[in-house]
Write a protein that binds this DNA or RNA. Structure first.
Lengths: 339, 339
DNA sequence: CTGAAAGCGCTAACAG
DNA sequence: CTGTTAGCGCTTTCAG
């Protein structure tokens, strides 16, 4: 009936370690808290014993006691846009390196994030990184009051109290306007993404401002409706009717779809007959079949800022960061002479 | 000093509900367990009160008590291969629909999954879905003994006790061999992916068997080393030296890279000069620039089987499922006459 | 610096 | 069917 030493029933707990060493259980808990006071001698004794027994603090129990979990939720809307799969990949990695776990939370299209967020709270999630989805500032405030950070990637909200980090979409739009104008384009079309996204709005605003400053304008504006390859192709058909010499698609996936439709369905040459530019610089933009000139979003900086923000202490102030995009010129724009 | 009713300090707990209704706390716990016995009258009274107070059971506490979490970990190796981002997307959605949360666990390239798995155990993760990574059968057995299901997607292990679900890679390889032979190809090259993956091995085996059965063979075999666009391009250069009339790339991303290199760097026409086929049917394979003939993996079936397996009761038997792939013919293979 | 004790919020026997 | 009583494994005062 006596306990066999080597053969525990469950996983080893702090009490097992305590018993082995003849110290109190709370001591071994402290030994794993850097800021707690334990004599150096005991601390090393404890970590050694812990390793020997294969002890690791149970995160769930800790979470129950502390009300934190060191897990952050990544909220994702559609993953149709490859840009976000890149973000997700880097995010997961960065969080991991910061000692945080990622709970992936995929919002079905058409569903509102806000409704699902309370459910997340029950997991004691420490923070929220929202990419490719929106969130009401009321909910954001609730989380904040509860000392849980929320940061938006590539989306901004009016409420200044919620951290958001994004690319300078407006400035990017301007750069593209300048590029197209400088190279002599006269008949420009803008293909818009979903109308309720701030990315789309800012890119368009920047582009339009850039044009107007130089007394130029659009020959037309097409609404693609969503960010997808097929929507880009469909938009290209409608755009082609306008006989443009340059098209700015609100993002790369749209541009790629458009490019292919222009070439393979509309029998137009890009860039000879019409130039096209996009935004994001997803991986496929650099593939030889496309060679799309576009604005590169500084994904890794965005990701590390986001992780830093979510890991920041509660006292830290929520601020919005906007990082400049980089124009990368490839083969989809041609200099036009004459006229 | 008396408690104000409306103004709790923390979130509302089961005890708050109990107090309000004048019943025991355990009763309210039972009310949320369908299999527990509570008088119908009380049950409805409780759920109403709960809703009124905004009570929801705390998952962490539950997890501590039950040693389960309704969280399953998705283990992902590289997300470079777009095939897996599709899998991930669907997986997250399917798990969500099954009432499970997904903890995303990204294994850095070159790292071994096994080392990180114990860390996951501390989260009381109910199960493990491993995609694009390997796991030792020792670890798998450990989890299993602990009543936590592990299922592999697109990877098999010798040990029959771990569930695995994959596409019939071997059969797919055969189909491709037949296709290429039927259309009169004589100089075939196989471009291999990472040598230690079962996907690569099976596809190659199936392909070779298909060839040998018809007394055909390869004119060469190239090792791409990894599953990536650039690796495919590099492999295409080496393959071209062999003057092939048909190339089977071990998967689509390789094939796409190869296709582009063949056309834009090697100045070869596909399929006129050389046919190419891939495997997976990732989204880009259907893009007009590529129109790649390939084998479609039944991703949604694979995903739902995986979720079913991970949610299965402990008594359920771990079995391996292999689903047939579907040949989808597009424009990258040409019928060859003569000789 | 260390130990004792009181929770965190829930589940699960066990009596009644 | 319902209440009581122990925990789950850890953190955190509070004394010593």
């Amino acid at each position: 009936m006596s306990k066999q030493p080597g053969r525990q029933k469950g996983p080893v707990t702090s009490r097992d370690v305590a018993r082995l060493l003849g110290v109190s259980q709370s001591m071994i808990s402290r030994a794993f808290d850097p800021r707690a006071s334990v004599s150096p001698a005991n601390r090393t004794r404890i970590v050694e014993a812990a390793r020997a027994l294969g002890y690791e603090p149970n995160v769930i129990a800790r979470s129950l006691a502390t009300r934190r979990s060191s897990i952050v939720a990544i909220v994702m809307g559609s993953m149709e846009n490859p840009f976000y799969t890149g973000v997700l990949d880097q995010l997961a990695q960065a969080l991991d390196e910061a000692g945080l776990r990622s709970l992936l939370f995929r919002v079905p299209p058409g569903q509102d994030v806000d409704d699902q967020l309370p459910a997340l709270r029950r997991y004691n999630v420490d923070g929220l990184i929202v990419a490719s989805a929106s969130i009401s500032s009321r909910i954001a405030a609730e989380w904040r009051r509860d000392d849980r950070r929320v940061v938006l990637i590539n989306r901004t909200v009016p409420d200044a109290s919620v951290a958001s980090i994004s690319c300078d979409n407006c400035g990017g739009g301007r750069q593209l306007a300048d590029l197209l104008l400088d190279s002599g384009h006269k008949r420009l079309v803008y293909v818009a993404g979903p109308r309720n996204t701030s990315t789309n709005r800012d890119r368009e605003d920047g582009f339009m401002e850039g044009l107007m400053e130089r007394n130029a304008g659009l020959v037309g504006r097409i609404d693609a409706g969503e960010y997808s390859f097929n929507a880009g192709a469909a938009a290209a058909h409608r755009a082609a009717a306008l006989k443009p010499d340059g098209i700015f698609f609100a993002n790369d996936i749209l541009a790629l779809g458009g490019l292919d439709a222009l070439r393979h369905e509309l029998r137009l040459q890009v860039p000879k007959h019409v130039s096209v530019v996009g935004f994001d610089d997803i991986e496929m933009a650099s593939w030889p079949s496309y060679r799309l000139t576009t604005i590169r979003q500084p994904v890794s900086e965005m990701v590390s800022s986001a992780v830093a923000a979510v890991a920041a202490s509660a006292t830290a102030q929520a601020n919005s960061i906007s990082l400049p995009g980089l124009l990368v010129e490839r083969g989809s724009v041609m200099r036009r002479h004459g006229m």
